[in-house]
Nucleic acid binder design. Sequence first.
DNA 1: CTTTTACTGCAACTCGATTGCAAAGATTAC
DNA 2: GTAATCTTTGCAATCGAGTTGCAGTAAAAG
Lengths: 136, 136
Amino acid sequence: MQTEEEILKIKKVKNTAVRTVVLRHLLSQEKAQSLKDIENALAYTDRSSIFRTLKTFEENKVIHSIEDGSGMTKYAVCAKGCNCDPKDLHYHFYCTNCDKTFCLFDVPIPQIELPQNFKLQQANMVVKGLCDNCNK
Amino acid sequence: MQTEEEILKIKKVKNTAVRTVVLRHLLSQEKAQSLKDIENALAYTDRSSIFRTLKTFEENKVIHSIEDGSGMTKYAVCAKGCNCDPKDLHYHFYCTNCDKTFCLFDVPIPQIELPQNFKLQQANMVVKGLCDNCNK
DNA sequence: CTTTTACTGCAACTCGATTGCAAAGATTAC
DNA sequence: GTAATCTTTGCAATCGAGTTGCAGTAAAAG
């Protein structure tokens, strides 16, 4: 696992106190985090600073955002080597019981055959259901 | 093509003035509509009435909603025979240039192999890129 | 016709997201 | 070094999509 400093260096994002703690928090969580999740976890960091940090991270492909339909955008750290290209696509799973959203890195996304002359740029694939923990 | 009255009858939704015009509008559009789109198109119908109509339609599977990442939930009329089961899944395409969202009924969604013990309930699959009209 | 239930329109409100601004901190120029 | 410049941060205010309470109206049931 890379440290926060290493990741920021690779992605050419200047390191600051807020950026370090936000990234550290994201790395420590198994489920994707909303702005509110992060705000609650980092009691002394302002929401707008976290917000702008997330925007910066997203622009520089440190993290990617997920629209899971819960009404709050979630964020997860990109896998090592991810460029957020269509080839880096993966499903996201939203558990309708425990409300967790996470990346399914191990489930391959099949080639999507778009109609003639359509150009794929990116995608937001959210599968909803019960996670293994809730499906008992 | 079925009329608004026929669709509502089949889906067991009582017909009213607002419901008819909302459904007519949805049927007349090739792209999925947001609440705001509908509100703008139907100048004399109140937003909350349209909102509640959309909720009713969704509960009764007259329409389905799409989270395309634009910040506004979009709605599209379900295909004939659709029960909004996983088997009725289809991709949605969001054009990053012209901002249109529409259903790709003709692009099959492959079987999704979830990890052990996960249960699929539904999914929101949004592919983003350029539509044929904008990819020139 | 009367009672009950459902639908509609208005206004107010919630809440996640976003922005303006000034202070603080970091970087560059001199 | 210090001054000038750019970036980041925190606070407060704002925006806007979504949602709800309530009262009036329309439709269905008795």
